[in-house]
Simulated assay, not measured.
Amino acid sequence: MTLLSVNLNKIAVLRNSRGGDEPDICKAAQTCIESGCGGITVHPRPDLRHVRPDDVRALAALLRGRVEYNIEGNPFAGARGEYPGLIALAREVRPTQVTLVPDSDGQITSDHGFDLERDIDRLRPLVAELLELGCRVSLFVDAGTENFDSAVAIGVERIEIYTGPYAQAFVEGKPGVALAACADTARRAQRAGLAVNAGHDLSQANLGTFKAAIPGLAEVSIGHALIGEALYEGLAVTVRNYVQILR
């Protein structure tokens, strides 16, 4: 079954908007685990706009030995203030998986993947260090990306397909072309020996269609839509709904 990893960034956004400790990100993670998710995702950023380094550490203690822990982020963003850098955080907490994403402070959210032809040499030593720590490494890529052999050659084990364009096309009622691009990218990656994850704007409405088109889909990371839907139905019910779709 495809693993559901719940992204808790939006819980942290709500907490940070008021200060203090509520809502409690660890309590949210506990609820998600009890409701059947197989992993928790966070995406700390240097500007501390949502998940903070102390959250990353607290969640590591909670999740260890229970479900997968996926930390996303830009490996090229240096330390700043309380933020020690993605690789340094991975060194501290040893997550199951580190998903490398080429985002910047100016982006509201991740909106593109790596250019493997341009970025692979810069990624090589960082991937090697993460593998040495025992972390599985996934690269965030756009649908249409090719040359996955270069990613395999530096030790990458998975890709995460950026599904924002598919989700937007689904809303517009014409997902066929975008979905086909995702499916073709998944096939190329799998032929190269990579497992395939996916994420960004996946929801209860569009997830079933997406999963049906991607045989062997290993993992989906879902946060924004899931937390938004949970405002109406509750977090536990919403997580169970996603798990059921993935079954």
Rank of each mutant, 00 (worst) to 15 (best):
A225P: 02
E34I: 01
I11G: 06
A198Q: 02
Q168A: 14
V98A: 13
V152A: 14
Q190G: 05
V93Y: 11
N147K: 11
K10D: 09
N16H: 00
G199I: 08
A79H: 01
V239L: 00
E117D: 10
T99H: 01
V93N: 11
G81E: 10
A58H: 06
I161L: 12
I25C: 07
A153E: 07
L100V: 13
A29G: 04
E68D: 14
L3F: 01
E92I: 05
T96H: 15
C32N: 11
G199Y: 09
R158H: 15
D119T: 09
T96R: 09
I120D: 00
G228I: 09
T96V: 11
I227M: 15
D184W: 01
G193T: 13
I154F: 07
V171L: 11
D115A: 13
A79Q: 13
A60K: 06
D121W: 02
G78K: 15
I154K: 05
Q107N: 12
E22K: 14
N9I: 10
F170W: 15
V171D: 13
A195W: 08
A58P: 09
R18Y: 09
D111M: 14
A180S: 11
C26I: 03
R122Q: 15
V239K: 11
V56Q: 09
F148A: 10
P175C: 13
T163A: 15
H224Q: 14
